[in-house]
């Protein structure tokens, strides 16, 4: 399936990716080629086949409901781009 340029812009927006205008054509072509590759799947008869979520059909392991992590805020925030008083800072989101 071929994608048009507006679809590429929509997908980039959903993906939160800045794509420069001069690259839209290249993405359009490459992503359309990838979709052409995966479109082979449409012809496969999968009637009644259970989708496979885990190779060994394992289910999520549960653990005892006890605290295992201690607070390491300073340690983890030491590598953050911008923090103040224990908070991660981002541009203002509420007017």
């Amino acid at each position: 399936m071929a994608l048009d340029q507006n679809q590429i812009r929509d997908i980039a927006e959903l993906s939160r990716l800045q794509i420069d205008d001069d690259q839209i054509t290249a993405y359009q072509q490459n992503l359309s080629n990838i979709l052409a590759l995966v479109d082979q799947l449409a012809a496969v008869d999968t009637q009644g086949i259970e989708p496979m979520a885990h190779p060994l059909d394992a289910t999520q392991r549960l653990r005892a409901d006890v605290v295992t992590e201690h607070n390491q805020r300073e340690h983890f925030q030491a590598i953050a781009p911008h923090t103040e008083q224990g908070h991660y800072l981002v541009p203002k989101v509420v007017e």
Binding site: L3, I8, I11, A12, L14, S15, L17, Y27, L31, I34, L35, V38, L41, A42, V44, T46, I49, E50, P51, M52, A53
Partner: peptide, 26 residues
């Protein structure tokens, strides 16, 4: 990321992701 976002987006999930997971079992 963009192919994955597209495949998981509303209206396409069954045709792509679910189908791929069925083929995976085959």
């Amino acid at each position: 990321i963009m192919i994955g976002t597209y495949a998981l987006s509303a209206g396409f999930y069954d045709a792509y992701y679910n189908k791929a997971q069925q083929v995976r079992r085959l």
